Each structure stands twice: as structure tokens, then as C-alpha cells.
Amino acid sequence: MIHAPPPAGPGRGMLVATYNVHRGRPPAGLFRPEGIARVIAEIRPDLIALQEAQHYLRPDRAMLDEDILAREAGLRSLRLPDRPGEQGWRSNLVLVRRDAAVLRPPLGLRIGGMEPRGAILAELDLGWGPFRLIATHFSLGASRRKRQAEALLAAMEAGAGSSLPTLLMGDLNEWRAGGSALGVLEPVFGTSPQVPTFPGFRPFLALDRIMGHPAGMVTGLRAHDTPLARRASDHLPLTARVSLPAPR
């Protein structure tokens, strides 16, 4: 059995991850969400944002076994107050340490697009201080991705805690530096290193991102490339360490 992660400590930055779980299906195969849970347990993150983690037609039907996630990874789902019967929001799901403090109830953001896309915005403290999380999944079309990035920046600026450090993570479906969505986000979050995560069995496209504001928060970006991860989804998870700036 893989044990729960150790408690937060001042000498260790948060370990975070983002992972498109392909609706619980391997690159070629049947619905096997238990493989996703095992990959998450391998990583043992303090926080992970998942995409394609809900049944499109039955969002009230949980895709992942929360008892297994709690037992083997020490994580719980961050549910929206107005949707307590759903694990996530528009296929996004955020899992956090069981001892995480939720400073403001998470919000589900509609960001447009023909696909069921959206974002989860939350204010959290996992033991290193307060920060804002934006977990999202962008569309396939470049013009839609640009508008979705603009919508997220507007939500970030409108928040009551607008001065909080912000962690943006998810599948942005964008691999070109300065292209559509990244062209909107990079003036605020800086240029994100390109770490290939897609396709999982032989990655060469950097579709997934972990970005921080202010600069310098996010370090150690890497793909979680293991035999299990290559079989579980068509994306590899992207992981990083996050060190929050000292409060002003």
C-alpha cells in the first residue's frame, strides 16, 4: 500500500500536479479509473487538478473512488457548495490534502466554448500560506482558448483576494509559446517551460501547464513518466514544486 504524504513543513514546497485523465480510459482500452487512482498515489501530491474527470452525461456519478484516494494518497475532492453531489465541475476535479484549509468556497466558472469546458477557482492554505487556485481545461480552437484565458484573468482580477499568489494549472491545449491562450496568460504568469506530456505513450506536445503569479513560485516542472502512467491515460501528469512568496 502507498501511504499518505507527510504533513506540510516549512522546508518543503508544495508538490502539485495537473493530469488529463481521459475520462478514466487508457489510450486504447476500456474504462479503468482505478489506474488513474494508482497514478495519483504514485505522485502523492499535496494538490492535483484533473481534467476529463467527470462523466459528461452523468456528472452526479463519481468517476474516482474517494475512499481509495483518501487511503492511498491522503486526498479529498474539493466540491462546489452548490453542487455537493458532484465530485467536480464541467469535467474539472481538484483533489487536495485532507487537512487543507478552504479559505473561500470554491467557484465553478463557465469560460465558454462548444465542449463542456470550465474552471474551478478556490482560495486555499495547505500549510504554506494562502493562495488562489485556478484549475481549468481549455478548448481545442485557438480563438476560443484566447477568450477562455481572458475570462480567467478577469475572474482573477475581480476576486476579493486579488492580491493573493495565484496558481494556474490544467490542460491548456496550447503548445506554442505566445500562441492564443499563452499569449494572454504570459504577461501575467510569465513564460512557462514546455514539458511534453502528450501523447502519454510517447509525449512530444506540451499541452499541460502549471503557472504561478508572481514569478518564481513554480519550479521543478517535470512529467510523471512511469510505466503505469503511460498506460493509464493519453496524457502524462505534469508535476511541480510551488513556493509561495512571503506575505507583504
Rank of each mutant, 00 (worst) to 15 (best):
E186C: 09
A215F: 10
R61F: 12
S233M: 06
L152G: 00
R23V: 13
V184A: 00
R176G: 12
Q54T: 06
T166M: 02
P130D: 03
R90C: 08
E34A: 12
G159P: 10
E52Y: 01
E157H: 15
G159L: 14
E115I: 15
V242G: 00
H3S: 11
T197R: 04
R25S: 08
A62S: 11
R44P: 09
V39S: 07
M14L: 14
R38D: 04
L15E: 06
L126G: 02
A100L: 11
R209S: 04
E42I: 05
I134P: 00
R222A: 07
A4F: 07
E52R: 04
L78N: 05
L50N: 07
R248V: 15
I36H: 05
H213K: 15
V195W: 01
G141M: 13
T226M: 01
V96S: 05
S91K: 12
R32T: 09
P214R: 05
A73Q: 10
A73V: 08
G200N: 05
R231S: 15
L140C: 10
V242D: 03
S139R: 13
F189T: 03
F198P: 06
R38L: 11
M14C: 13
G24Y: 05
G141Q: 13
S143M: 15
F189C: 06
G220Q: 08
G200I: 11
Q54G: 13
E115G: 07
L64D: 00
E150I: 08
V188M: 14
L182R: 06
N20W: 00
A229H: 01
S192I: 09
E34C: 12
R12F: 06
L185E: 00
L140Q: 07
S77N: 15
A122I: 12
A119M: 14
L50P: 08
R110W: 10
P130Q: 09
R145S: 00
A229S: 01
D65N: 05
R104M: 11
P245Q: 03
D234Y: 04
G141V: 10
V195C: 02
T136P: 00
G13P: 08
R132Y: 02
L126I: 07
P81N: 09
D225V: 12
R44M: 13
A232C: 04
P187G: 01
A28Y: 14
E34G: 14
E174D: 14
R97P: 00
R222T: 07
A37D: 12
L64Q: 01
S192E: 10
